[in-house]
Design a protein around this nucleic acid. Structure first.
Lengths: 179, 179
DNA sequence: TAGGATTTGTTGCCTAGTGCAATAATGGCT
DNA sequence: AGCCATTATTGCACTAGGCAACAAATCCTA
């Protein structure tokens, strides 16, 4: 039978009796705010892709981003970058080639390998989605009270820094959207 | 032939000559910070699920969250909540039933409909993932300089507020993770 | 109240994404 | 030359999803 997926262990991460410190900023409130922000940020990311090319799926877009950032890649490297099986990369690229977003050509030095590159259209797509996403965020920022922005910048950096030190991203699930 | 997915229109959202206002906080810097934060938040969300139940997929978890929040649902309503086709909901629930995370029973009042509920295990899973996610965020917050937290709270709320007024989420892509 | 319209869940068909295993072609090394 | 590692591909199996066809049930109206 299928292993039923019951929770693997009890919490132990929450400290119910931890009521001591800060009544001040309220850690819980900050967590709530982070969750809210998380929703908003994800929505922006999703929309910036969906608005622009509905027939490019998320996994496909991730591949495009990887190719845009790490230049020409061999299939195996792309697969590793995306943490997917090589076969998955192969097939995905096949679809992207069909959509004329990726160019696949045999590598001259190693006849086993194929070299994957973005076509101009692929390049353009990634650039445009990125542009859109940033523009949307900028629009939101413009809506924020001007006075708070400096603190906001500091706060976000502090958060990102703090988060950066955490176990580090193993990108187990395939969610990175680049930029 | 497949419609090739070229970018549908040019930017027009970026204002290249917009260099006028603030040298101060730098809108671009804030956008960068938001993108960084976005990555971190997504990573946390992904991990809190993956760590706990690898054999529950993201779509499946979304369904569980919906059921957890909106009580018992009929298949059609769940489908709508997730913005997927009814058939998709049907089949997904079938898998969740198989994993004993969801209970499906005919509705007494309308013999066509089925009523979907979380099993205790399903309930527990959602609760636990949520708990974990919040705990991880709390851990990060604890790592932030204490002085900045009040500002961080204000900043995040300002951002979420500002984002909330934007076109509104149509959740076109299925990314909402609840909580 | 009888019959058409609508709703609800299912199922078939097709595409995409994924992993694992097997395979063929190549490259490297002894 | 022979053996082993690497590369990409392909077959198999499964989840996710949409669309269309359907049967059963409910609703509505003439």
């Amino acid at each position: 039978m299928p292993s039923t997926a019951r929770p693997r262990q009890a919490a132990s991460e929450t400290h119910p009796h931890r009521r001591r410190s800060t009544p001040g900023a309220g850690r819980e409130e900050l967590v709530d705010a982070l969750l809210a922000a998380s929703r908003a940020l994800v929505a922006v990311a999703a929309r910036s892709l969906a608005d622009l090319a509905e027939d490019v799926t998320l996994p496909q877009y991730r591949a495009l981003v990887e190719l845009a950032q790490r230049g020409p890649l061999r299939a195996a490297d792309l697969a590793q970058a995306l943490s997917v099986d090589r076969s998955t990369a192969t097939r995905m690229c096949e679809r992207l080639v069909r959509k004329e977003l990726v160019d696949r050509r045999p590598e001259s030095t190693d006849r086993r390998a194929v070299s994957l590159t973005l076509t101009p259209a692929g390049s353009e797509l990634v650039a445009e989605v990125t542009r859109r996403r940033r523009a949307e965020l900028a629009k939101i920022v413009r809506r924020m009270p001007r006075e708070g922005r400096v603190q906001a910048l500091a706060a976000l950096r502090a958060f990102a820094d703090a988060a950066g030190e955490v176990p580090a991203q193993d990108w187990a699930m395939g969610w990175d959207l680049g930029s």
